[in-house]
C-alpha cells in the first residue's frame, strides 16, 4: 500500500526536475523502534524511487552506532539528507504532512547547493566562526 498518492508523486517528480547533483538519504531506524521507523523507511523509499539522482541507505541506530554518532543522530526515526557533502540537514520523526514539503525541499536544496537567501543573510552566515545548531519542532498537521 503506497503512502504517496498519484498526485504527490506527480508533484514531487516535477520538483525533482530541478535536481542536479546526486542526493543520499540515510534513514536511521530500529527494529524495536516505533511504528514510524518502518513508515519513515517506506516513505523515503517512495521518494527516492522517483528519481535516479537519489539513493537511500537504511542504518540501525545501535548496530551502526559509529555512523549514527558521526551524523549526530541519537534517536529514531532519523533522516539525513546529503548532497555531494553533508550540509547538516536532519529530520527526526516521520517527515510527513507539512514536513513532507520540507523533505522534498531539502532534497532539491542539497542537490543544487543553492540556498535562496538574501545577500545580507549569506554574508552574515559566511562570517560565522562557531557552530549553530537549529532545532525546529513541528507537527505534521
Amino acid at each position: 500500500m503506497p503512502i504517496l498518492t498519484d498526485r504527490d508523486r506527480e508533484a514531487v517528480t516535477k520538483e525533482f526536475e530541478k535536481l542536479t547533483d546526486p542526493v543520499k538519504v540515510t534513514v536511521f531506524s530500529q527494529e524495536l523502534g516505533s511504528e514510524t521507523c518502518q513508515q519513515t523507511e517506506w516513505l523515503v523509499k517512495e521518494v527516492v524511487d522517483l528519481t535516479d539522482k537519489a539513493s537511500m541507505e537504511v542504518l540501525n541506530l545501535i548496530l551502526d552506532r559509529e555512523k549514527a554518532e558521526a551524523y549526530g543522530v541519537d534517536r529514531v526515526p532519523a533522516v539525513v539528507v546529503e548532497g555531494t557533502k553533508d550540509y547538516g540537514i536532519r529530520f527526526f520523526g516521520i517527515p510527513a504532512g507539512y514536513e513532507f514539503t520540507n523533505l522534498i525541499d531539502a532534497v532539491v536544496l542539497v542537490s543544487t547547493g543553492k540556498p535562496s537567501l538574501s545577500e545580507e543573510t549569506r554574508a552574515a552566515l559566511a562570517a560565522l566562526a562557531s557552530p549553530v545548531h537549529i532545532k525546529v519542532f513541528a507537527t505534521p498537521t
Binding site: G88, I89, F92, G93, K114, L125, A126, L128, S130
Partner: peptide, 21 residues
Amino acid sequence: AQHMAVASDQVRADCIEANEF
C-alpha cells in the same frame, strides 16, 4: 533553517516531529 544549513558549514538544521518525541 535548511537554507541556512546549506549556506554555511557551521549551521546544522534539525526538523523534529514534536508529537513523536
